[in-house]
Each structure stands twice: as C-alpha cells, then as structure tokens.
Design a protein around this nucleic acid. Structure first.
Lengths: 210, 210
DNA sequence: GTCACTAATGACCAACTGGTCACTAAGCTC
DNA sequence: GAGCTTAGTGACCAGTTGGTCATTAGTGAC
C-alpha cells in the first residue's frame, strides 16, 4: 500500500484531490494553538449558519485558512469538533442570582446581550440548528442545558409546576431565537435589542411567575 | 453516450447499482396515483423525522416501496418533492374565528389536536427541522405561514403591537414544538395532551392579549 | 393480438462527503 | 548542521448523494 509522492505524474488530469483556494498566500508555519483556535471559531460560525448536517469539514477548514486534513488531525472527527466548538456550559438563562421579581428582566437582558455580542452566531444557534437536523450529540448538549436550567431555578422560584414553567421559558427563548436568528424575518427579527427586551420581559414574567 | 444493456458483463463485481431491499415481493403494477400518494406520505414522515438535509430520496423511496428513480420521475427533484409534501397552507394558528377572549384556548386546543393526530409527524415539524438545516424553500414556506397568521389576526385582535404579539405566539409555538417533538425531552414532552392545553392557555393569553 | 403510451426499474454518473495516511518541512535540542 | 519531533499538507479512498436515462413491462385502444 505504498502512497505516491506529491508530484506523481500518473493521472495528470482528473482527480485533482484537494481543491486549492485562489490564494494560499501564507507561508507554512507551525502554530498549533493559533490554528486550533481559528478552526474552533470557524466551526462555531459555520455550524451557527448552516447547522451540523450541512456544514462540511472542508468549509470549516477553508474559513480557518487550513486544510481539512489538519482539522481532522486536531479534532479527529466532525462530531468531536462540534463538541469542542459548542460548549455545553452555554446556559441561556444564566445570571439568575438576585431578586426573583426582577428575574424575567434579567433573563431577557442577559439573553439579548449575549445574542447581540455574537452577532447572531452564538453557539446556541448552532445548537438549535444541529438538534433540528437530528444530530444526537447536539441533542444531548441541549438536554443537558435544559437540565442545568431546571436545577438552577429549582431553588429560586418556588411553587408547583416549576419544572413546566422553566421549560416553557426555555421553549419560548428557543422560538424567539428561531424567529430572530434562523428565519430572520418578521417583527421579532426587526426589533432593536432594546425593543426586544421590552417585548420579552412581560411575556417571560407571565410564563415564569404566572 | 450509449448506455449499456442491463446484463452487460463488464465489471461483474463492484458497482452493483441500486441496492435491492430483502423483499421486492410486489409484482410490478402501474398505479401512478397510489404510488404518488405513498411517496408523499413517506416524504412527510421522513422530513418530519430527519429534516430536509438528512433525508435522502432513496430513504423516501424505500419507505414508499418504490425505487428512487420513480420518486425523481414523479417529482423531478428533492426540493420539489418537499414543496409537494409540506403544503404551505398548513397554518398553525388556524380556527381563529370566534370570541377573542377564548382565542388563546382555541389556539392551544387546535395546535395540540393537530399535533396529536399526526403522532408528532406533522408537516410543521418537517418545516421547522428543514428551516433549521438551512433549506431555503422551507424558509419561504415558514415566512409565508407567518405572514398568513399575521393577516388573519390583524382584523381580529386590536391594539398596537399586534404584529409583535402574534409573532411572539408563533415563536412560542415553534419553541414548544421543538421541545416536545424534536428534542422530545423535559416537562413539555412528557405532558399529556390535556395537560399541555392547560399549560399553554394562560401563556398564550398573556403573550397575545397582555 | 398488436400497438402506442408511459409507469416503473435499475444501472449509471459526477460531485461531494468524512476520514486516512504517506509525505513535507518547521522549529527545537544537542 | 544533524537529527528528532510533530504540525501541516494534499492525494487518496470508499460510501453516499441527487440526478439521468436506456430499458422493461403493464395497460388500454383498436
């Protein structure tokens, strides 16, 4: 099973292997950490834009300015890359500590700020897209996220039916994210950050506190 | 560009073409309408289970008990099949006519009944999954659906911010659908139909009517 | 029966996919 | 500068995909 050298003359046309972008441009250097970080960022963006199924390793490699062989070298498989790029700790309903009465406002502000900062390419969008396309790893991640939220809220918000209400808040935020950052059309998509916060607060309050 | 006959002897091994399932079993008959309907149903199920990107024409053909060539013959392309199988008229918030005060209850019941009837394989699930995987045709369908809802509610529910509130109801239902029929875990997924209606009504009322 | 029409089949194709691996060459230590 | 380690490359592969098309065979009209 000998492999042929790079300049093997057989099959001069056809089967041109890895397609080279128009500009390699960069001299070959060794910067494993820099490369790794670039791949992770490219992966987050690509997964957020197209979901797991439609994102190809070659596309991620192209964005990161490396070959797809290097992506495989660093992360082993597409799924492991996904798990490295979309951390499970990304809890949507973070910053819960504080007065329960102002909790809905804190959730809304925290959510909007986070989404705004990432320019709509938050890993949460990647997660939603990937879960929808049936990726099991993404499903596990989202389930874990939901379980985390529930645990955090359990000791803060009292009353029966707490689980259902927290779960409903999560569902609502998923739906809002879907409208605003996936479908990207309609009133929810065209609101400014401030308008969105104002719109979300009473709804979150109603769902969470009744 | 002559094609070779079926029993061409070259390449006796390898390239065995269409893989045959274990049981063809059915005699070859001509029933175009029956086949067409079977393909459409198989497509709806498959798209709802896996979304557009991950569903293959061969999988649909297998479920419908036909060859993938026939699917292509009837529908021309995967996208056209999708558009034929997931009708745009499927409005989530139908049955709006009636007393505005009981509108949230009617929306909730209509939604739950519809999802329950299809056993979680409603075309709406297919739509959500496919939009999330970046399918443009699905995006157009969902946008049209949202526009339809807005138009229907515009003359029923008065007051400023109507667009945003209707849109928010849509987002909420998308999120609930996502939790219950895509992620299939957590409180929203384990509720009975009746419990879900009871849970949804006050939330829909709060979002829609303030 | 035979003929025309066309539903249905399945072999084929080109493009693309995730993944493998022989090779190349930076950059370190001595 | 020789030698080692290993980051980085790109040719390659096998499997899968959406799509094409020559061929086969029901079915109704005559």
């Amino acid at each position: 099973m000998r492999r042929l050298g790079a300049m093997d003359a057989s099959r001069a046309t056809g089967a041109l292997g890895e397609d080279r972008g128009p500009a390699p441009a960069r001299k070959r250097t060794r910067e494993p950490e820099v490369r790794r970080a670039a791949i992770l960022e490219a992966a987050r963006d690509a997964f957020a834009e197209r979901g797991f199924a439609r994102t190809t390793i070659r596309e991620i490699a192209r964005r990161a300015g490396v070959t797809h062989g290097l992506v495989m070298r660093h992360f082993g498989s597409k799924e492991r890359l996904f798990l490295a790029a979309v951390p499970s700790s990304q809890n949507l309903m973070a910053e819960v500590a504080g007065d329960p009465a102002s909790l809905p406002a804190r959730i809304a502000r925290s959510y909007v700020r986070r989404m705004s900062n990432s320019g709509g390419n938050d890993p949460f969008v990647a997660l939603i897209r990937s879960v929808a396309s049936g990726e099991e790893a993404a499903e596990r991640l989202l389930r874990a996220m939901q379980d985390d939220s529930l645990e955090m809220y359990r000791q803060l918000v009292p009353g029966p039916g707490l689980e259902a209400r927290v779960s409903s808040v999560g569902a609502y935020l998923i739906g809002v994210t879907f409208s605003r950052y996936v479908v990207r059309s309609g009133p929810l998509a065209s609101m400014s950050d401030e308008e969105l916060v104002d719109h979300l607060v009473p709804n979150l309050r109603a769902i969470l506190l009744g």
